[in-house]
Amino acid sequence: MTSITIPTSLRDVLEALAGGARPIAGGTDLVVSSRQGKAPLPEALVAIDQVAELSEVKTGTDGLMIGAMVTHARLMTEELLVESYTAVADAAALVGSPSTRNVGTIGGNVMNGSPAMDTGAPLVVLGAEVELRSTSGSRRVSLADLWTGPGRTSAAPDELCVAVHLPLRPVRSGSAYVRLEYRRAMEIAVVGAAASVSLAEDGTIAAVAVALTAVAPTILAVPDLDALVGLDPTVAAQRVAPAASATATPISDLRASDTYRRHTIGVMATRAVEAAARRASGETIAVPVNRALGIGAAR
């Protein structure tokens, strides 16, 4: 039998966690995997949706704070995100269906730690940190330090993800997330790539980051992209493909073979860099890029 408490204060939530309860936000992972028989529901649950501060989106001097309870539906429409952290909005807009997006949250998504999660790669390229809190204190960790394997994180059982923090964006910057998908709703990324690009005044690459979805046990940043700095974005976009394919360690499963994944992750990385660079140059590409630019963001 599962018991559930529904506090309205964060303090009560943290105390429940300290007492052994597990948190539930939208329930899109927890409830579904229980129904599928993958993992039984925990004996004690603490709902976090009545804690108002967890649903805030706030700008500060050091960037943007997104509360853990912010839903995908909000991520894809919130002006602060669509303007400056567009890749997150691209990814949120591709998740599941309207009903999944209305209940699924960024905190739940991040802490579920799936290598196929859509919002993960965008958060990595944007340099996100997760704020973890427990009755004994608060700490911030990078996503690279948070995710330790598929479905595994370095958070202690009594720690709650209360917010995701995104640093301020440089001038002339843009970001994008694209994914390979076989249909346009209720889909899970076959592979996906996010890119963040900032441009120098002459339009060449000043900085670039790329992260990959569904090609390794966790979401991965493509290392050693410094060689792309100073290049024309279209050239950089082409050069990122082999780097992405080399970073990937994909598996073969029902959705795709490892060979096909290794090829298409390069294609997605190229398209993500192209779209991010176009946004960095001031062009508006509607969210999500996958829909605005056609099949798998082809054009």
């Binding site: 390979l180 998908e181 076989y182 298409t264 294609v267 056609g294 099949i295 798998g296 082809a298």
Partner: peptide, 11 residues
């Protein structure tokens, strides 16, 4: 139909 030649996705 439209074909994405880089991925084989057909719409």
């Amino acid at each position: 139909v439209r074909l994405d030649r880089d991925t084989g996705v057909v719409r």
